[in-house]
Design a protein around this nucleic acid. Structure first.
Length: 280
DNA sequence: CTAAGGACCTGTCGGC
DNA sequence: TGCCGACAGGTCCTTA
């Protein structure tokens, strides 16, 4: 579930319930997520007041004066706000109970998610080498041109690389490439300035749009059924293999790139003309 | 350094 | 109905 818009929606959804509230206790039912949940959390967080909720890439940061609880939702994670006393279900691995009776609960069937701790002024190494936020001004075609230098990976894998830009997952990568009319397999060193500009614009627009949608389902989602509903209808290519392209009405194709399914329109998204080798 | 592939884990769906 | 393989929103780590 969690692409960047969902993570952003989660942050906005939980913050009003817990900001400024002191933590009562921590419950770890299953410490073995992607990494072991560190003991520091249970040791240091109770008694501290939550200052704010921030997002960096797809990491959720619960800020305390001594440090931050870092939560990543992986593939299948979600956070919900509940009242204390709710019985935990099978994949409810981690709770933070606050002194106002609110419980923040992490559910994650596949356990690719993570709960980590970073001490103030000792940033976690996972957050150190992240690229720019896609919605910040600092992310532009220039970012891409610089990062693409000397690289031959497909443009889709390139935009999903967190060192290049964060927060572009499999769904929105496919959607942005469709919007920019770029074939996902195009080697990134063959992308023109013009296409890079279109791609950046598409990424920003699509993510911002999805976050707006997330805003609409916010209430439900805090209420606890965790069912986001913002996409589905808006998607042009993701999950639509074999269906008709909304632009040209020809069927959409699917290929695999970096072991990820990649749907695109072979008619609207063309590979650039192969440069003729001049070798005589 | 880059690129490719494996690894982590559970649930669901399609085919036989 | 049951079993089995393929696949699913992420991304780190190892290897070449």
């Amino acid at each position: 579930m969690p692409e960047l818009p969902e993570v952003e929606t989660t942050c906005r959804g939980i913050e009003p319930h817990i900001q400024g509230v002191v933590v009562h206790s921590i419950t770890v039912r299953q410490p073995q997520l992607r990494w072991l949940i560190p003991d520091e959390i249970g040791d240091r967080v109770p008694g501290q007041k939550l200052l704010e909720v921030q997002r960096r890439a797809k990491y959720i940061l619960l800020k305390f004066s001594r440090g931050d609880v870092i939560i990543h939702l992986g593939m299948s994670g979600s956070l919900r706000v509940l009242r204390a006393g709710e019985v935990a279900a099978k994949h409810d691995h981690f709770d933070i109970r606050f002194c106002n009776g609110v419980v923040l609960r992490l559910t994650d069937p596949r356990r690719f998610g993570a709960v980590l701790w970073q001490e103030t002024d000792q940033p976690h190494k996972l957050l150190l080498n992240l690229g720019p936020e896609p919605l910040e001004e600092s992310f532009s075609a220039k970012t891409f041109i610089k990062a693409a230098k000397g690289r031959k990976v497909s443009v889709k894998q390139f935009i999903m690389d967190n060192k290049v830009v964060v927060g572009v997952g499999n769904i929105y990568a496919a959607e942005a490439l469709f919007a920019a009319a770029i074939h996902p397999q195009t080697p990134v060193n063959q992308i023109s300035m013009d296409k890079f500009n279109k791609l950046v614009t598409a990424i920003k627009f699509i993510l911002a749009q999805a976050i707006k949608r997330g805003g609409t389902t916010l209430k439900d989602f805090v209420g606890g059924d965790g069912k986001p509903g913002y996409f589905a209808q808006e998607l042009q290519v993701y999950g639509r293999k074999g269906e008709t392209c909304n632009a040209c009405l020809k069927p959409l194709s699917e290929i695999r790139l970096g072991q990820r399914s990649t749907v695109f329109c072979p008619n609207c998204q063309r590979l650039p003309r192969v440069r003729k080798k001049i070798d005589q």
